[in-house]
Design a protein around this nucleic acid. Structure first.
Lengths: 211, 211
DNA sequence: ACAATTAATGACCAACCGGTCATTAATTTA
DNA sequence: TAAATTAATGACCGGTTGGTCATTAATTGT
């Protein structure tokens, strides 16, 4: 039916998974989980749909692999940073934010939080996975930092669990906005500037002594 | 084919649109725009799919009608509150937040921001509509308040456009969280408590004089 | 009572997509 | 070189859904 062997059908067992994961990240982030067709993922990775199923059991496994390969290592890195840190707790918050920006915020992985928010209700399996693997660890990390800051009097006393949410919210919204309605807005804001203002408000808002 | 007139086929031209809009809001919020089947909307409103198309041209028109009927009136209300307000600007922010909570935050409409974020990329038509009708007006309202607070020295000087985003972020994330991954979290936080903490941080973070 | 009007129905269509599997062919082994 | 192995393919299946339209029947007017 098609011209014989016009397709350069090469066997590259080692490279396929990585290329499929990269294509999957791109398309999942651009279109969401449900709306991403596996045939498109395969095509963008330069293989056929059948080949994708050779390397990943199904759509869900493919998605989980994207998270595992891309997000979890950065989390481990930030946990390491917190463990090694000496100095003011606010400086630790800045370090964590900075590394997060370099490894997630400015990369394609920045689209994952919006995707999870968007699909959580329709794919509870995925939501559970993401909550346990990513969110709970993030919260634990930030919670420990806040406790540290309050314990030595750098921060004023606050409900830790609630404060975690309030503090992370603008950071998450930055990503969510840029991956959803930002295209409708007349002008794009500078993310560095946005994060700077958030940290400014936070420095003054958290402080115990009114500097 | 089916038992004759077992169905209580009643003609209720006046009531149908409202009932269809209520059902649509419920399902759109629960499942998202793309994943909501119009047959389910019709069924929940007690009519057949054909009847839905008698009152709304298509899925998009149905969704826009939900926004128009439910969200825009509240926006007008808040614009009115701001116009009439006298007293400190921070008190105005509290008034606006309070009315927003009563009319949107604690109702089913609270699910709309998550829906828009989730579907914006795949339905640019809808995103444009929402940005122009809702978001730009919200931003204008908050921007005017911030300008007022800075002009009379109550707030310290900040980049208005960026501050709008940073300040709204935790409020939006409250809704987004509750309509997405909250079901995975072990314990539910009290939204009033969350908003209170946000306003506390903000009062101290925005203030010029260090009270 | 009977015809005219129109609200309401639901079978149907075309398009779409996750996942399967028999077939093809690149590569390795002997 | 020939046989064995396995990477890669793509036609196909079952299930789904937005939207259409010919038909049915509730209501209204005379």
């Amino acid at each position: 039916m098609n011209p014989p062997s016009l397709s350069p059908r090469k066997r590259r067992k080692e490279a396929r998974p990585g290329e499929l994961l990269a294509a999957a990240l791109d398309l999942f982030v651009a279109r969401g989980y449900a709306a991403t067709r596996l045939e498109d993922v395969a095509q963008q990775a330069g293989v056929s749909k059948g080949t994708l199923y050779l390397y990943f059991e199904n759509k869900e496994a493919l998605f989980k692999a994207v998270i595992r390969e891309g997000i979890l290592p950065v989390l481990a890195e930030n946990e390491e940073i917190a463990a090694r840190h000496e100095g003011s707790t606010f400086a630790l918050l800045e370090k964590l934010l900075n590394n997060w920006w370099l490894r997630i915020g400015r990369t394609a992985y920045a689209g994952i939080p919006k995707l999870m928010v968007a699909e959580a209700n329709n794919f509870p399996e995925l939501a559970q996975f993401y909550y346990e693997q990513v969110i709970s660890r993030c919260r634990a990390l930030l919670g420990a930092a806040l406790r540290r800051g309050m314990a030595d009097g750098e921060f004023r006393p606050l409900d830790i669990e609630v404060a975690i949410d309030v503090i992370i919210a603008p950071i998450l919204m930055l990503l969510i906005w840029r991956h959803s309605l930002a295209s409708c807005a007349p002008r794009e804001h500078d993310p560095q500037h946005y994060l700077q203002l958030h940290m400014d408000l936070l420095r003054q808002g958290l402080s115990r002594s009114q500097v």
